[in-house]
Structures are given as structure tokens and as C-alpha cells.
Computed example of a mutant assay.
Amino acid sequence: MKLFFREISSEGQPLIIIHGLFGFSDNWVTFAKQLTDNYRVLLIDQRNHGNSPHSDIWDYEAMAEDLREFIEDLQLENPIIMGHSMGGKAAMEFAIRYPSMLEKLIVVDIAPKSYPLHHQKIIAGLESLDLKNIKSRQEADKQLEKFIPEFGTRLFLMKNLARDKEGNFKLKMNLPVISQNIANVVASISEGAHFMKPTLFIRGDQSDYILDSDFDLIEDIFSDVEIETVENAGHWIHADKPQELLNIVKDFID
């Protein structure tokens, strides 16, 4: 699949940043612009998200193959790959399948394990949107609020609202496929995985996505790994503590 991408800078070692579930490349533009002095920064939209094509197939194997095709098409050599949440798992899956195709791996606030399903309210809220009759983003926000009380989460989700050719609102993401296959996103990466190149895991201390009890699993799979914790940050570390995240990433990649 030919993924949509944004090239933030064109010089230096390639650095690919991969967004998480319900997101797209735009979420990471501000962060990426601070890495352009030394790196060719590329932000991708994963399948069924943003401006990338939609597909009925949606799992980490497919996402890893999309990333392989992207790297081969652009003839990227020794890229550093950084992924947040779902993007972190896609990056892990790619790294264990194609270890020779990257130099370093950065995983932001996700572990290689399986998780319980926990996106049902968000999906229900998005499915409840009366897109044909909504006239403004304010109306969409009021409808989402019935399911999602957190304003920041609603604001993040509403970035997916766009207009179709008739001027009606639509969602950029492929919500039906995401809803039907959400179990694939909370699944673990492939069993028997192992990756020996430098790897960095970053977690927020207020997030429960990477627990202390996950460290043994991470270290079993990633033999050359560092694990860093950002204080006063939740799951969206790049929004909560962007400078602290930037400092950790720069220290690792430089």
C-alpha cells in the first residue's frame, strides 16, 4: 500500500515517525520540526488513517508491510523509526521482521504485550456522529461529549473531520474497519520476536500502558534497550511534555 506521508525536512539520516490509533501524521508535525537540523524527518499516515488508502485488512503484519514498502519506495537507508502507541507496535513488528532495514527503534508508551479492549466508548461516540446533518464542529463536539467527557480527547478525534465533495462532514479514518478489527490493535506483536539493535522505550509516569511489570518482557525481546520515564505525562507524551520527550529522543538518536 502506498502510504500518504509528510516530508518535514529533506537532508540527513531518515527518521520516520508513526502516529497512533485514531491519529494521523499531522499530530506530530510540531514535534518533528524540532528534529530537522540533522535528520530527514518523514511522517506517515498508517492505512485506514489520515490521507492513506483504506483497506479491509488491518493488523500489525499489514502495517509492517506498508512500512517496508514505504522505505523501499523512497530508498531510505538506515532509518530510525519512532512510533507512538499503535504506531509503536507497528514499528516493533517491522523491526523484528526486517531488522536489517533500520538502525534504531523508538517506542513511545506502548508495550509489546496484548491489552484488554478499551476503545469502545470512543468508537461508539464516533459511530454516533450524524455526519450528514452536522453543520459545525461545535455540533460534532456536543454529540461526542455524550460518550467522551474529556475535551482534549474530543479535540484530538475531531481533527479527523473533513468535508466531502458535497460539503458534508466525513471522517478521514476508516471507522467501520477499525471498529470491526479493533482486537487486532490491542494484540501483542508476533510471538518469538527478538530485536538486537539499539531500542528506546519511553513511557509517561501517569500512563498505564507500560508498567514496571512489563520490563522483563521488553528486555526479553529487545536485547539492547533503554527504558525512560517522563514525569507528569500521560499516554500522549508529545502533547503533555514535548520538550522532555524531545530531549530524550535527541540524546538517543544523536
Rank of each mutant, 00 (worst) to 15 (best):
P99I: 10
F169G: 05
L126V: 03
V108F: 04
P112S: 13
K104T: 13
H119P: 02
A95E: 11
E93T: 12
L155K: 14
G152W: 05
L126G: 09
Q120K: 10
R154F: 02
E93V: 04
F147N: 03
H118W: 09
L144A: 12
H118N: 15
R97C: 06
F169T: 08
I96T: 15
F156Y: 12
F169D: 07
Q138T: 09
K121T: 11
M92C: 11
P116C: 11
N168G: 03
H119K: 09
K135Q: 15
E150Y: 03
H119V: 14
F94K: 13
I110M: 06
H118Y: 15
H119Y: 11
A95K: 06
I106S: 02
R137I: 12
L117H: 01
D130E: 15
I96M: 11
D164Y: 11
L102V: 12
L102D: 02
D109T: 10
E93R: 07
H119E: 01
P112D: 08
L105D: 08
A111I: 04
Y115N: 10
G125N: 05
L117R: 13
F156Q: 03
M101W: 13
G152A: 10
P116D: 08
I134Y: 02
I106K: 03
Y115R: 03
R163P: 00
F151V: 07
D164T: 13
I106V: 09
I96R: 04
S114M: 06
K165Q: 14
Y115T: 04
F151S: 04
F147H: 06
A111E: 02
L161A: 03
A90Q: 02
A140P: 01
K104P: 02
E166K: 14
P112C: 06
M101T: 03
F151G: 00
I110H: 02
K146E: 15
P112L: 08
F156S: 00
I96D: 05
A124N: 10
M101P: 00
R163M: 00
K135A: 10
K159P: 01
I148G: 08
K146W: 04
K146M: 04
E127M: 07
K165T: 09
F156N: 00
V108N: 08
S128G: 13
L155V: 07
Q120S: 07
E139Q: 12
Y115D: 10
K159C: 01
D130H: 11
M158Q: 15
E166V: 01
S128F: 04
S136E: 03
K146G: 07
I110W: 07
R137Y: 03
L155D: 09
E150C: 04
K89D: 08
Q138S: 13
V108P: 03
L161G: 06
S100L: 01
G167M: 05
Y98F: 14
L144C: 09
K132A: 14
I134C: 00
L144V: 06
A91N: 02
K113F: 06
S114Q: 15
D164V: 09
I122Y: 06
V107F: 03
S136K: 02
L129D: 12
L129Q: 05
A162E: 13
L102G: 08
E103S: 13
A162C: 11
K121D: 11
L102N: 03
S128Q: 12
K121Q: 14
E139F: 04
E139G: 02
E139H: 07
P99W: 12
S114H: 07
Q138A: 15
